[in-house]
Design a protein around this nucleic acid. Sequence first.
DNA 1: ATTTCAAATGCAACAATGATGCAAATGTAT
DNA 2: ATACATTTGCATCATTGTTGCATTTGAAAT
Lengths: 137, 137
Amino acid sequence: MIAVEILNNNNLKRTSCREGIIDVVMNAKQALSENEIRDRLVGNYDRTTFYRSFKTLEEHKIIHKIVVDNQLIKYAIDNTITHTDEHAHFYCNECNSVQCMENVPIQKYQLPDGYSDVETEVLIKGTCVNCKNQENN
Amino acid sequence: MIAVEILNNNNLKRTSCREGIIDVVMNAKQALSENEIRDRLVGNYDRTTFYRSFKTLEEHKIIHKIVVDNQLIKYAIDNTITHTDEHAHFYCNECNSVQCMENVPIQKYQLPDGYSDVETEVLIKGTCVNCKNQENN
DNA sequence: ATTTCAAATGCAACAATGATGCAAATGTAT
DNA sequence: ATACATTTGCATCATTGTTGCATTTGAAAT
C-alpha cells in the first residue's frame, strides 16, 4: 500500500505533508521520533501544520504513538495498515531505539471479575540485537 | 511503612512536600495525576518545588509513572516500597482512572534471538468494575 | 539549645510543546 | 476552469519541563 491510497481510503486530502509523513514512517525500519520524521521529510512545514498532520493521522489510526517513560515518543505505522496482529514494542536502553516486535504477540491477561479489556499495550525494555553485537567486538 | 521512614531509608531530607506526596500516593486506592495529588496536599508549594520533589521520588524509585497515550500521567507507589511483584496497570476508558493490578503479573515474552529484556510494562485498557456496575443500573 | 552547612525552596526566566483563530493557499469534485 | 470546503502558515496563548540563584530549612555536630 502506498501513501496516496491510504489517504484516499480514509477520505483525507492528499497533502504533501501527510503523504511525506506516511512515506517516512512506512519505510522506516524502526519507530521514529517526531524530529526524526521531520528531518527525513523533503519539504519544510510549519510546526502547527506538522503537528496537525500527525494528529489527523493518529486519529485515523494510520500511525500510532509508542511512549517510553513519557520522555521519548516514537511513531510507527498502525497494525490496521500493515494488516499485522497487535504486537509488543521493544525499547533499547542503550541506543534508545524503538522497534515493533511483529512476531511477539500480546498475551492474554486474566483480569479480576468485572473488568473487561479492549486493548493491551506492552513495552519491553532491554538491549537490542545491534547493541548486543557491538558489545562483543 | 510510613512516609518518614521511606525518606530516611533513601537518605532524603524529610521535607513537608516530599512527605505529603508520599502520604497521598500511598493512601490512594488508584493512581493519581499530578493535579490530583496537589489538590490533596495540605500545604501549597511552588510549581518547581513540587516538580522537583516528584523527580526526586521517581529517581529513588519511591513512586512511578504510568502513562496512557502520552496524555494522562498517573503516579503510584513503587513495587519496591510495597514489596509486591511487577504487575500490569489498568486504564479505564470511561472514568479515566488508572489502577495497579497487583494480582495480574507481567507475563514472559519470547523475544527474537539477540534481544534481552530487563523490564516489561503492560497497560490494559478497557472498562473497570465500577463503570461496568453503573451501566447495569 | 545553638551553631553550621549542605540541601531544598521559591522565584524569575526560558525552551519546548499543545492548542486555537483566522486569512490565504491548496486539493478535489464538478 | 471554476467553486468550495479543507488545509496551511502565522500569530498567539497555555501548559509543562528545566535551570540559575538568593534565601530558607533540615539535620548533624557541638
